[in-house]
Amino acid sequence: MNLPIPLVVLITILCLAGIGLYCLLITRNLIKVVIALQLIVKGAVLAFILAGNMTGQLNLAQSMALTVIVADTIVAVVGLALAVQIRLKTGSLDIKSLSSLKR
């Protein structure tokens, strides 16, 4: 079997995003939510590179990818820090316990 490289990358992107979304859909654990977000964003970064490669603007795509990685790291850090605080406050990591804004 000899698949062209762009197709392989595309399948990888879809798999990453699909797994991430599926995980977001079913999990209630905050840590796992953060992991799922990471998966989706990694798919998105790959998609940037693929798009850049296909349109011939690879340097633009690379700079975008770097920006996304930085932003994504911050999201992960803040998300995990919040998770720790929530664990300390409520005693669980279940996101159901977070719907207290709704009365």
Partner: peptide, 17 residues
């Protein structure tokens, strides 16, 4: 319309998908 806002992440992701 308040019932549509569950405040639970899974439902929101389901809505997006």
């Amino acid at each position: 319309l308040r019932v549509t806002q569950t405040g639970i992440l899974n439902w929101n992701v389901f809505g997006i998908l």
